[in-house]
Design a protein around this nucleic acid. Structure first.
Lengths: 204, 204
DNA sequence: CACTAAAGCGGAGGCGCCTCCGTTTATCTA
DNA sequence: TAGATAAACGGAGGCGCCTCCGCTTTAGTG
């Protein structure tokens, strides 16, 4: 029980800076390892394993993240941010249609790690109501940026917008959690891209 | 994780009968003790304590109730049934307005045990969607019976119906979980009854 | 650099979860 | 009533959770 609100105080740079160097190091390490372990073993992974693999004691983990949910939230946010940041980098390095396609592929991977997190995420979203709107807003903003760029330079057709694409990706959320889920989702992305390229002013 | 649907197979009398005598005894004992322990210690009470106090091994508890949620569901259903059954008994033993008042008092106690169960119940209701509609339907049916009887014999005013009363009781659900919650709710029931008696054809 | 206070570390220990399997018991048949 | 057998029992054991507190490290101060 005991679902105290997950504070967001540690988001403030001031608070972040006030950590001692060793503490900051351990904290970062824990988040990184946690992301890997959650991806590998699922949300119910042993926190002791995370601490072990991060090379810290279990006490240290609990000091930084008093509940499993705190840790999950930070990992979740970090991944969402990474996804958003990738949009800019991809756009800078690739033709805009390729950037969009690659970003959607990563989006699928991102969602993949969220599968099976249903319960934990539900608790998080209940507890911290800004979490969902924050991240989903930022993610769709990133998508919008990519779609608009690709429309603008004619590598995808002009009669769609970001919300159409988001809608099309929506099937990924709701699809059942089968073993072939990932492959099917990738095919879906490809299909979607072909559709988007069809009728573009600039031929692929 | 692993939220397999909570089966309702054990509701069938046939299945119930097929238990060996000792098994049935232990199962009943467990449910009874679990109700007490959940009420006393909250939903997170130790299952080992429940087994201990029921005088069975922890293995026996888990054989009958493979997850905590299974056990909670059975306790929940049992209590709701008790509440419904009480309506008939109270009606038989008391003037109809007194029966209604006493029943509402018990309803408050019933809800009291559900406080703090938020998460577990949410999981149950998600998993087993009939659970909520089943029980709430039956409970409001019981209330309806009492209200209609009291209206019929004039011990409460005639211009209200069961859904009005249920609505008035609704505040009990939504009130925050403070220490004075129980007392406040009891005062609310009293207040409601005074209002219901006011203008009754048959003076109290 | 030496010293110190405060911040941080980490793991032992206690508890609860859940499974597994050797033992006990109810029920059925002769 | 005795014997057979499937059902049920129960607790040891392994694992994870989380707290508590004595020890270590850092970051300031003179």
């Amino acid at each position: 029980m005991a679902f105290e609100p997950v504070t967001t105080a540690d988001q403030k740079p001031a608070a972040a800076k006030s950590l001692r160097a060793d503490a900051r190091r351990n904290r970062d390490r824990l988040v990184e390892v946690a992301a890997a372990v959650f991806a590998e073993r699922g949300i119910d992974a042993s926190l002791e394993e995370i601490a072990r693999r991060a090379g810290v004691g279990i006490g240290t983990l609990y000091r930084h993240f008093p509940t499993r949910e705190h840790l999950v939230e930070v990992v979740y946010r970090r991944e969402a941010e990474g996804l958003c940041a990738a949009a800019g980098e991809l756009a800078a390095r690739h033709p805009s249609d390729v950037a969009l396609e690659e970003w959607m592929r990563r989006f699928v991977d991102y969602i993949a790690t969220k599968r099976g997190l249903a319960t934990s995420l539900r608790i998080l979203f209940t507890t911290n109501s800004t979490l969902f709107s924050d991240t989903s807003g930022r993610v769709s903003q990133a998508l919008r940026q990519l779609v608009e760029a690709a429309v603008a330079d004619g590598t995808i057709r002009g009669d769609v917008d970001a919300s159409d694409v988001l809608h099309a990706l929506g099937g990924i959320y709701s699809a059942p959690d089968t073993p072939e889920w990932r492959d099917r989702s990738r095919r879906l992305v490809k299909l979607l891209m072909d559709g988007l390229r069809f009728g573009a002013t600039k031929a692929g």
